[in-house]
Simulated assay, not measured.
Amino acid sequence: MPTPTIVLVHGAWADGSSWNPVSVELQSRGFEVLTPPNLLHGVAGDAAYIASFLEQRTSGPVVLVGHSYGGVVITNAGTGGGDVKALVYVNAFIPDVGETVFDILGGSGSALDVPDPTAVLDLAGYPGAPEGDVEAFLKPSTVHEAFAQDLSEADRLLIVASQRPIALGANIGPTETAAWQSIPSWAVVGTADRVIPADTQRRMAERAGSTVTEVDASHVSMVSHPQVAVDAIVAAAESVAG
């Protein structure tokens, strides 16, 4: 089987550049790497976009990788387009059918699971929003203390400045298809993750039957400890290539 294409899907408050440390290493090993935009406006639409991207922009086997909310998107998109042979979740949600981000985080101890979301998020309307929907930005204090606490101050400030907001509606959209039920998966669990606590990541990964690696890292382990993500992705790719 030919070498698979690696498709990296970013999460909320990020863009494709959040994968740069991982992409550079994978490219140096000869992999074709693509980092499509994740629209961050709703599970169904975001997944349809990634599925369409896979169908049109890839040929041959694909290892589909998601970080954080990107895990929701790859779970829903993995069987919708392209020839996805493996899934890799990096500090990511691995939802089952019917579950939402808010369902998973509720009672988990996440820094985002608070009675008043404006304590950790800044909310703003956006043009064309469904009635009542708003975009959520991380407060600077949330980035520094709970999202990327193991990065340098300079890198945390860059995240604050460049973050792409996620529509709150994306967090209440239910998963419609769980690709991990039919596609083998790998998971990187950040044990110092304050956004998706490690126990929550472990529970989802165990349910999905994922091959799990743990790393002492924040929610953005692919930035602070990129080699761990690289190793999981390469393992998935090698399983595909046989």
Rank of each mutant, 00 (worst) to 15 (best):
Q149C: 12
Q149H: 15
D150I: 00
L151Q: 15
L151M: 15
L151I: 14
L151T: 13
S152G: 15
E153Y: 14
A154K: 09
A154T: 08
D155P: 14
R156S: 12
R156W: 14
R156F: 12
L157W: 14
L158P: 11
L158T: 13
I159V: 13
I159M: 15
V160Q: 10
V160A: 10
V160L: 11
V160E: 15
A161S: 11
A161N: 12
S162N: 12
S162K: 11
Q163L: 14
Q163G: 13
Q163M: 14
R164E: 15
R164H: 15
R164I: 15
R164N: 15
R164Y: 15
P165G: 01
P165W: 03
P165T: 02
I166C: 09
I166A: 10
I166R: 00
A167H: 10
A167C: 14
A167F: 05
L168F: 04
L168E: 02
G169V: 08
G169C: 11
N171S: 08
N171T: 05
I172M: 06
I172L: 05
I172Y: 03
I172P: 01
I172N: 03
G173V: 07
P174A: 00
P174D: 02
P174N: 06
P174H: 05
T175Q: 06
T175G: 03
T175M: 02
T175K: 02
E176G: 00
E176M: 04
E176Q: 09
T177N: 08
T177R: 09
A178T: 01
A178Y: 00
A179N: 01
W180L: 02
Q181E: 08
Q181T: 07
S182F: 02
S182N: 07
I183W: 09
P184H: 00
P184V: 02
P184S: 07
S185L: 01
S185D: 04
S185G: 01
S185C: 02
W186C: 00
W186F: 05
W186K: 01
W186S: 01
A187G: 02
A187S: 06
V188W: 01
V188R: 00
G190H: 06
G190W: 04
G190Q: 11
A192V: 02
A192K: 07
A192P: 00
D193C: 03
D193T: 07
D193K: 06
R194L: 13
R194W: 05
R194A: 11
R194K: 12
V195M: 11
V195Q: 08
V195A: 09
V195R: 01
I196R: 03
I196F: 07
I196T: 06
I196G: 00
P197F: 13
P197I: 09
P197W: 10
P197C: 10
A198N: 09
A198K: 09
D199M: 13
D199P: 08
D199N: 13
T200R: 10
T200S: 09
Q201Y: 05
Q201G: 07
Q201F: 07
Q201P: 04
R202M: 10
R202W: 09
R202D: 07
